[in-house]
Design a protein around this nucleic acid. Structure first.
Lengths: 188, 188
DNA sequence: TATCTATATATCAATTCGATATATATCAAG
DNA sequence: CTTGATATATATCGAATTGATATATAGATA
């Protein structure tokens, strides 16, 4: 899913500036399952405007740079829905925490514990954010459904972490970071 | 987490060629929580070799391009473990399926159903893959723990989908794709 | 015999990130 | 009451990464 499609998706539901699209996709309503940076959003909006899939009107503000408010066109709506016809690609998932967990035997307990605490913080924040959309009165039902899915997964993740935390802690530091009789080191 | 660190992570556990690192990180043992392509792995390995964090030996094969087998050095091990000292960043999650779910009211039932079926297939395949590592005799305990975490999350995701599938299907096509009295269209 | 898949390295245009520059309003702290 | 931090808002740019493609061959399948 490229950034142009992401912009169309958000503009399908509401008018927005580039700034607002970035905010909603990295900290807001859509941040659970999309993300994009300024460096890709602004060029994407320019391209979409050139293709007449969105229109732009400028709102002058006192002092601050004037807001460029983008709206999706009928062509944009058609184009976007068509792009959803293809079966969805697999979810993309990357986790630094699981990278740390994988290496737990070579890491000291305090590092492992800090990683767990950091993760719990992230999960709680995510659940909090999703909660505010999962049952929001004026949200479209599809957005609510997606938020409830997200919440359910985050809560389950938190539960697993509680149930299996001790096990991970007990593994911390159980192996030497640099193994002496490591075949791959023998040649050095 | 950049590709250089990803390569060190894998080489921490086993020697590998660039080809094998790509395979393990997109289809194999590590694919649940990392990913990288040839275009980033080969340059990363060259840089790591220049920095003496890995070494390389060439294995001539009959006909096929010779295998360049990379091993991590003691410096590489130290460097990698230090990079894990920083608290982990939030997981990265992107989902085309949830994008479709969000728009369910504007999509026909058959598209929605195909998306659900496709997703079920992805989840089952992922669970299958993780299962083979979660209880593998010769795997390090940390890798097993991470695989069990992944399996638990995928199973829960599948359960939510089963329990809430009907609800999503009932929302399909409940709104007109292009709303007539849409403020954002009025100006056109 | 022909075609497809897997192994294996490598490059490259296009995309995207992450950081930074610019400009101003607003709010909190000292 | 002034200084500093945070939020709004647009935009650019180098660096990282993707995704596709090229090259070469063995082995499996049709």
């Amino acid at each position: 899913m490229n950034v142009k499609t992401l912009c169309l998706a958000i503009l399908y539901f509401e008018e927005a500036t580039g700034y607002e699209i970035r905010k909603m996709s990295t900290e807001g309503k859509y941040s659970h399952f999309v993300d994009a940076s300024y460096g890709s959003i602004y060029p994407a909006l320019n391209k979409l405007e050139a293709e007449e899939l969105v229109t732009c009107r400028e709102e002058k503000t006192s002092g601050k740079p004037s807001r460029k408010i983008y709206s999706i066109t009928n062509n944009g709506r058609k184009n976007f829905l068509e792009s959803l016809n293809a079966p969805p690609a697999k979810d993309i998932f990357r986790s630094e925490f699981l990278m740390i967990a994988m290496c737990v035997e070579f890491l000291p307990l305090d590092i492992v514990n800090r990683a767990i605490e950091t993760r719990i913080g992230h999960l709680l924040a995510e659940i909090d954010l999703l909660k505010s959309f999962a049952n929001h009165e004026n949200s479209p039902e599809g957005i609510k459904w997606a938020a409830q899915y997200g919440m359910d997964c985050m809560k389950n993740s938190l539960d697993f972490l509680s149930d299996n935390r001790k096990k991970l802690e007990n593994l911390a530091g159980s192996k030497e970071p640099i193994s002496i009789n490591d075949k791959s080191e023998a040649a050095q």
